[in-house]
Design a protein around this nucleic acid. Structure first.
Lengths: 406, 406
DNA sequence: AGGTGTGTGGAAAGCGCTTTCCGGCACCGT
DNA sequence: ACGGTGCCGGAAAGCGCTTTCCACACACCT
């Protein structure tokens, strides 16, 4: 790996000048960090004096042309040796070895930005979430990360910080980053300038990107759809079958599509079985832990002295956990005083007691599938109709909703 | 937004040729996605026939020179109008308006990659985690995302997928991406080729990047350090004060530094108070939920018939929750049969009953601080000694460790 | 008028990379 | 000996952008 070059060599091949002003700093730096060798230093341009020179510190990394010079080959050959194999352009073994050795010796690393510009494509996919600390999004992102890793892609995380209206802005950002694909995890909100989001997504797709929406489909885009309505209906039927007759719903924001579908599915099931949900027992609130807490308190307030509700369905587990906390604070026992069910089967449910009845959604897998779908669609040159993959869900009964003695 | 241009106009200003082979596809696409206008299409190069042409589809987005042409100004002016203000180079208001209008009309969006190459710096920071679905990392990343958002930076998420040895690889990847800074959240492992990680980090720093390590300091790099030893010691003293005398430790992997410091701190506190931890009551296991479960079962197995342990300290909350689950399965009640404490105070603790005694670590803030530190260090041109910010932690007593009647 | 600023647009070089075309070379059959 | 045929290295153009230097126009002051 070490060839016959003089160890103190300072890249005469490159013909570049060293910074004089910057030299002390750069040597100091190199000394401090050690191990890095002569190639790590500050470079200045501008010896030509012609227009176009960049007399500021532009880069501190070894470039491919330096590697090429060190290996005594041309830039083209160096590029081919390192990333080549494109077409039938083979670099002979000995040259390739020389280049690889030089690259290693100089600690060269490809500049992914430059590569992206030259190749016209990046190696990053973007993922939009509302709050990465929420276990729902965390699980989805874990799946995205797994699939991206398998495909040797980077993940760019864009978070709205719980402001749904920022989704469009983040999509624009990812377009600017030329992300290969965007996986949109945030729940769809009807009030959050949907036109703006659609516009941003269309522009992104028009620029050659692929979009996959997770949760519910969005007109015109590929989607991995969770069967919210069906799952909630199945849960409703199951609870009815267990003997529950006076349900209440902690329903999430009115404009939140996922929340709405779950509420509608659940309500429809009870209605069909002859025990419609009392409208006064449907409380809307934020799609969060504290939203669930608040909605539960509001519900209890509406009930007054006597609780005329036997089961509470929170449209997601995080809200259900909020409700559980609120119930505890109120001195109400679940399931003795009140049964409780959620939706999603987030991982942290394994640690709550009593076990929470819910609808299992394979979140991590969904994240991975969405990513794989995006990558597959990218390959499909033909412009096809949006692919919508429906994910079935499954009711999981736990202790929070025991069969009700009649 | 709609100006007087002929709708069928095909950018004569640009002088570029349209693809003939690709035209049907591109028109079809533009038709399908609507709203995008004539500027979104496939472009081919190669009308010159000279070397250097790129006859493949290179990009589908509007470029700045097209905007410049549409606005009737030069490339330089267009660039200055959109991002300018660098130095005292002002673009007069009317020209600036023309450029902005043209950009909007063409749905132009800057190519962040090209910008990064030209400017020599990106706008992304990298964050390395072991598992984003783990609430510990999720909270930290939420903080990183918040701070990055405030600084108008992108977050590139790199996950080892629970393989600590992959940290070095991911750092190399982030170096390749020319991330402005790397925030290393993964716990330090002694066995995971530390030299390789250190080497990768040094090369990254040598290339102009900034590194901040979270958790415990790593020689030579900035860090936001959690007072693991002190926190665990304080917890130990507190529990001793409550009357516990026969502690056990679910200690995490031997080589895991955070785990080790917490174990040592806790053990030291009990030793100082005259009740050293029995070595046979220290069980090592993975730093995860199932690791906690397994370690707890192992501990119970070692105890045999009679449980001669009065409090179990798990070196993190996730393990403590695993232990709690295992205890439930075994029919043991916490705290009646056994007290339990953890470390970190992850958010999901709010939903477990009994409330788990732990050591509060402001995880999300730490993520944000680490990011802010990285950005501050980037500005400080002077090469200074590594900054290590110590974060104090606080014992939080909950129901899982009631005062023990003597 | 003739200098001297001052402001502002444009030409063009440069970032670091990929990929094309060309041309040189070795090998082969005739 | 000669043209054909592969193979493979190099020169150079190009990606889309930023920033420099130059040039020109217009004051302003003597």
């Amino acid at each position: 790996m070490v060839d016959g070059m003089a160890p103190a060599q300072t890249w005469p091949e490159t013909g570049r000048s060293w910074s004089s002003a910057g030299a002390p700093l750069s040597y100091g730096l190199a000394g401090l960090i050690g191990l890095v060798g002569p190639s790590v230093r500050e470079r200045r341009f501008g010896e030509t004096g012609r227009p176009g020179r960049l007399p500021y510190i532009a880069a501190m990394s070894v470039t491919l042309s330096e590697v090429a010079a060190a290996a005594g080959v041309s830039l083209a050959t160096a590029s081919r040796a390192l990333h080549g194999a494109s077409g039938r352009r083979q670099v002979k073994a000995d040259l390739k070895q020389r280049v690889l050795a030089a690259a290693e010796r100089l600690n060269y690393t490809t500049d992914a930005m430059a590569q992206a510009v030259a190749r016209g494509r990046t190696s990053a996919i973007g993922v939009v979430v509302h709050d990465i600390a929420d276990p729902y999004f965390a699980a989805l992102v874990a799946g995205v990360a797994r699939a991206a890793d398998a495909a040797a892609l980077q993940v760019t995380l864009a978070s709205t910080q719980n402001e749904p209206a920022r989704e469009a802005e983040l999509v624009r950002l990812l377009r600017q980053q030329r992300a290969r694909a965007v996986v949109l995890l945030g729940g769809r909100h009807e009030d959050a300038k949907p036109a703006e989001l659609g516009q941003a997504l269309r522009l992104y797709v028009g620029g050659g990107g692929t979009v996959v929406v997770v949760g519910q489909p969005l007109a015109g885009f590929d989607a991995v759809a969770i069967d919210n309505r069906g799952g909630a209906a199945a849960l409703g039927r199951t609870l009815h079958g267990l003997g529950y007759r006076r349900p209440a719903i902690l329903a999430g924001p009115l404009a939140h599509l996922t929340a709405r579908h779950r509420r509608e599915g659940f309500a429809a099931a009870f209605a069909e079985l002859g025990d419609p949900v009392d409208q006064a027992r449907i409380v809307h609130g934020a799609f969060t832990h504290s939203g669930g807490e608040a909605a539960f308190l509001e519900l209890m307030g509406r009930c007054g002295e006597r609780i005329d509700v036997d089961v509470v369905f929170a449209v997601n587990d995080v809200m259900a956990l909020g409700a559980l906390a609120a119930a505890r604070d109120l001195g109400l026992a679940v399931p003795d005083d009140l049964a409780l069910a959620g939706f999603d089967d987030i991982t942290s449910l394994r640690d709550v007691a009593p076990g929470l009845t819910t609808v299992h959604v394979p979140l991590e897998d969904i994240g991975a599938w969405a990513t794989e779908l995006a990558l597959a669609e990218e390959l499909a040159e033909e412009e096809s109709d949006p692919v919508v993959r429906q994910i079935p869900v499954q009711v999981v009964l736990r202790q929070s909703t025991p069969a009700r003695p009649r």
